[in-house]
């Protein structure tokens, strides 16, 4: 099945699954059972809200069929956007009912006089509110990613279970066989996804462990972990892709991080793979430097759609900021091994010369392949006669070849840099279809 067909199928299936409860609800009603427009609209908002909540996990459970089309980062972004959409529907559900005379006290889960049906509804409502607030304000609240990730999963499970129990106990539509079968089926699919994500996938990773061969200190305080497969054939990936690196005691550990592969996709017989990590968070600052050769780690991947293998062109323009060089380094190394003679212009922005990760490697590659290297330093050292400041349209125009508009552009780096560079590329009339980036700074 082609990517476009799979994309349309996935989009259609998603919308259908969200609307299906309304179809079943409408079909199972007998004439004269309606409760008025606003009450029924509120009920519909509740059903749609619950269906979105149930489908949220599917978006981030790394299902290759879908992740391979849109990219896991796009699915995570979509998960976030649908998180806001579900908030609107779930908020509308009680609000419309309150306007029709339902007492506001129903939202208090601690009121003893309420039946459990309302209490579950209130827990689901406040649980979702807490979930959205923690995700939206994680950085402002200074919550670590690891802590947030665990609590996000727990609160989501509690909110969804409470909302489902609320629907079951309300009766009315949900007392009918069609609705009961439908929600049971959704619950079963969700359960299967959780089992696959939390049990089967880690078990598969456990059968394919990796050993840390080297933990190399790079420029800019970055670290490169070189891994060797233990009794398996390693990982086949496209240059530019990433994998979830799990450094816990077992692959069941929550502590896993999406890291770009920095080594060549054509590693040959030794099957080694490398990940380069900059100390930007608790895990990368405290855990990564302490990983010793001989340690066992686990990988889930490969994922990602940022790759010259996917978007072929007569030439490539790569734009990196800081540690964003890692997937682009993998691309350059791979293309060099493949004797690819297409032109590559690599713009690499860093704070200063000492922060340029892989600079010796890149300079070596420049001699081996059709690679033009342009360093752009924010704070250049004394005597620096190269580019400095920010990557602007003017700088790009000066360095790009004449036919750059047909080239494929890959951007990787901090969000601010990627946003700015995309705008500069638009000033140069580079079509959006030629600009590729991957974003993980979503929460």
């Amino acid at each position: 099945m082609s990517g476009l067909v799979r994309g349309i199928f996935s989009f259609g299936a998603y919308v259908f699954l969200l609307l299906f409860p309304l179809i079943i609800g409408a079909l199972s009603r007998h004439p004269g059972q309606g409760r008025g427009f606003w009450v029924e609209f509120a009920v519909a908002c509740g059903y749609v809200g619950l269906a979105i909540m149930a489908a949220q996990f599917a978006l981030v459970s790394r299902v290759q069929f879908v992740a391979g089309i849109f990219g896991q980062d796009a699915l995570q972004h979509f998960h976030k956007q649908m998180g806001y959409a579900v908030t609107v529907f779930v908020l509308a559900h009680p609000m419309l009912l309150f306007l029709r005379g339902l007492p506001w006290g129903m939202l208090n889960p601690f009121t003893l006089e309420h039946h459990w049906v309302w209490r579950f509804g209130a827990i689901g409502f406040w649980g979702l509110g807490l979930l959205v607030c923690l995700a939206a304000f994680r950085k402002r609240l200074k919550l670590s990613y690891e802590w947030w990730h665990v609590t996000h999963a727990i609160i989501a499970a509690v909110a969804l279970s409470s909302a489902l129990l609320h629907v079951y106990l309300v009766g009315y539509d949900s007392s009918r066989a069609g609705m009961r079968v439908l929600w049971s089926l959704y619950l079963l699919i969700l359960f299967a996804l959780v089992v696959r994500y939390r049990i089967l996938r880690p078990l598969e990773m456990w059968r394919k462990p990796w050993e840390v061969v080297e933990n190399i200190t790079e420029h800019g305080n970055a670290r490169t972990l070189v891994l060797h497969p233990i009794d398996h054939h390693g990982l086949r990936f496209a240059p530019g892709q990433f994998a979830w690196l799990n450094t816990g005691k077992t692959p069941f550990h929550f502590d896993q991080h999406p890291i770009s592969i920095s080594s060549s996709a054509e590693s040959g017989a030794n099957c080694q793979i490398a990940f380069t990590i900059k100390p930007l968070g608790d895990w990368s600052r405290e855990v990564v430097p302490e990983i010793k050769p001989g340690a066992r780690v686990w990988l889930d991947g490969p994922y990602g759609v940022l790759s010259p293998d996917r978007d072929q062109g007569p030439g490539y323009v790569m734009i990196a900021g800081g540690v964003g060089i890692t997937p682009l380094h993998s691309m350059c190394e791979t293309l060099a091994i493949r004797d690819d003679c297409r032109p590559i212009i690599l713009f690499y922005a860093a704070h200063d010369y000492d922060e340029l990760i892989f600079r010796e490697d890149l300079e070596k590659l420049q001699k081996q392949m059709n690679l033009k290297l342009v360093y752009v330093l924010e704070k250049p050292n004394l005597g620096w006669d190269g580019e400095h400041g920010r990557i602007t349209a003017e700088l790009l125009r000066r360095r790009l070849p004449r036919h750059y508009k047909r080239f494929q552009f890959f951007i990787c780096g901090p969000t601010l840099l990627m946003d700015a560079v995309e705008q500069e590329l638009h000033k140069l009339d580079v079509g959006s279809e030629f600009i590729h980036s991957e974003r993980f700074d979503l929460v």
């Binding site: 989009f11 998603y14 919308v15 969200l18 609307l19 309304l22 609800g25 409408a26 009603r29 004439p31 004269g32 059972q33 309606g34 409760r35 008025g36 427009f37 606003w38 029924e40 609209f41 009920v43 519909a44 908002c45 059903y47 749609v48 979105i52 849109f70 990219g71 980062d73 796009a74 972004h77 979509f78 956007q81 649908m82 806001y84 959409a85 609107v88 529907f89 995309e422 959006s432 279809e433 600009i435 590729h436 980036s437 974003r439």
Partner: peptide, 30 residues
């Protein structure tokens, strides 16, 4: 670019779902 498409896809889906809610309410309101 992909993220912009994704945002618009989410908005489109939200509108479709709201329209679905409206149709449901109209068809069963009694």
């Amino acid at each position: 670019m992909r993220m912009v498409v994704v945002t618009w896809a989410a908005i489109l889906i939200a509108v479709l779902l709201a329209a679905g809610c409206l149709l449901f309410a109209i068809s069963v309101k009694g």
